Simulated assay, not measured.
Amino acid sequence: MRPGESKPINRSNWLERLPEALREDVLNSCVRLKYKRGRHLFRQGDPANGIYCILTGEAQVVGTTITGLDILVSVLRANDWTGYLACTDKGNYTFSVIASQPCEVLHVPLAAVRRIFMSDADAFRLFVLPEIASTRATYQHFVENLAFTPLQRLARRLIDLTSAPHGEERVSDFISPITQDQLALSIMTSRQWANRLLQHMEQAKLIAISRGRIDILNRDALLTLAVHGESGFTVAEPADSAAEDLPRDPA
């Protein structure tokens, strides 16, 4: 990789935390790839072939259940990395990563990952730190889903989808593209009920909904709702004729 091409990814928290020698080895070992919207970087169940960094565009991390339902797990944006777990345990990728916008991607092949990170304990620890952060977030998400109401879960989901994948740092004020089905499945409720909850959030001026897009207008209030509950919100049973501002997934 040419030296002048390394600049766009130096903002990556993970890459910046690496010692200079490891960081340069990663940069010298990677290749750039381009993906059209809808193309897979990799599919759930594929053998590991390395780690990926989004340089431009966005990609959605999607998990598929044994019954074939696709669950939106997170959104990857510029300087987000993915693929650590499969490279660590020599297993298959646990999720699919799909370009939701045209993407330019940095790929570090598996052979380079193993050479750089798997022969030294300190280097290995640095490699798995993002996966450890993801595991901690998964535990928190699991506990919250047991205790939270659907409205709280939706608020939490909107915060998550506009945050860095391994933390709560805000990286975007909107989510696009997004569908009703993706949101409903991710908070374990019906599409109609998720749409009704979104309408109440919009009426409270927490969000703004347009075709295939949700803008976050009041992130602090949304986070308060997610953490402390829905005092002040009165949510009626969803009507069959409720307006649907977000598109449905194809049947």
Results as ranks from 00 to 15, higher is better:
residue 4 G to T: 00
residue 4 G to V: 01
residue 9 I to N: 01
residue 22 L to F: 01
residue 22 L to N: 04
residue 26 V to D: 03
residue 31 V to D: 06
residue 32 R to Y: 13
residue 35 Y to G: 05
residue 39 R to L: 08
residue 39 R to T: 07
residue 39 R to F: 08
residue 40 H to C: 14
residue 40 H to S: 13
residue 42 F to I: 04
residue 43 R to A: 12
residue 47 P to M: 03
residue 49 N to V: 10
residue 54 I to A: 12
residue 55 L to A: 11
residue 56 T to R: 05
residue 57 G to A: 07
residue 60 Q to K: 12
residue 60 Q to Y: 08
residue 60 Q to T: 08
residue 61 V to N: 01
residue 63 G to C: 04
residue 64 T to Y: 01
residue 64 T to F: 00
residue 65 T to D: 13
residue 66 I to M: 10
residue 68 G to I: 11
residue 69 L to V: 13
residue 71 I to L: 15
residue 71 I to R: 04
residue 73 V to D: 09
residue 75 V to F: 15
residue 77 R to Y: 09
residue 78 A to P: 05
residue 83 G to L: 14
residue 87 C to P: 03
residue 88 T to H: 13
residue 90 K to A: 14
residue 91 G to Y: 13
residue 92 N to D: 12
residue 93 Y to T: 00
residue 96 S to A: 14
residue 96 S to Y: 06
residue 96 S to R: 03
residue 98 I to P: 00
residue 99 A to H: 07
residue 105 V to D: 05
residue 105 V to T: 11
residue 106 L to R: 06
residue 106 L to W: 10
residue 109 P to Y: 14
residue 110 L to T: 02
residue 111 A to M: 04
residue 114 R to T: 14
residue 114 R to N: 15
residue 118 M to G: 06
residue 120 D to S: 11
residue 123 A to N: 07
residue 125 R to Y: 15
residue 127 F to R: 10
residue 128 V to N: 09
residue 128 V to Y: 14
residue 133 A to C: 11
residue 134 S to C: 08
residue 135 T to Q: 13
residue 136 R to C: 12
residue 138 T to Q: 03
residue 141 H to E: 15
residue 145 N to R: 15
residue 145 N to P: 02
residue 147 A to V: 06
residue 154 L to Y: 06
residue 155 A to G: 11
residue 160 D to G: 00
residue 161 L to D: 03
residue 162 T to E: 08
residue 163 S to W: 13
residue 164 A to G: 08
residue 165 P to S: 13
residue 167 G to K: 06
residue 169 E to Y: 02
residue 171 V to P: 03
residue 173 D to T: 07
residue 174 F to S: 12
residue 176 S to I: 04
residue 176 S to R: 07
residue 178 I to Q: 05
residue 181 D to K: 10
residue 188 M to L: 11
residue 191 R to G: 11
residue 194 A to M: 10
residue 195 N to A: 15
residue 199 Q to I: 11
residue 200 H to V: 13
residue 202 E to G: 05
residue 205 K to D: 11
residue 206 L to N: 04
residue 206 L to Q: 03
residue 207 I to W: 09
residue 208 A to K: 05
residue 213 R to K: 12
residue 216 I to M: 13
residue 217 L to Q: 10
residue 220 D to K: 04
residue 223 L to W: 10
residue 226 A to R: 03
residue 228 H to N: 10
residue 231 S to Y: 06
residue 232 G to K: 08
residue 233 F to P: 00
residue 235 V to K: 00
residue 235 V to R: 00
residue 236 A to W: 01
residue 239 A to Y: 05
residue 242 A to G: 14
residue 247 P to A: 05
residue 249 D to L: 15
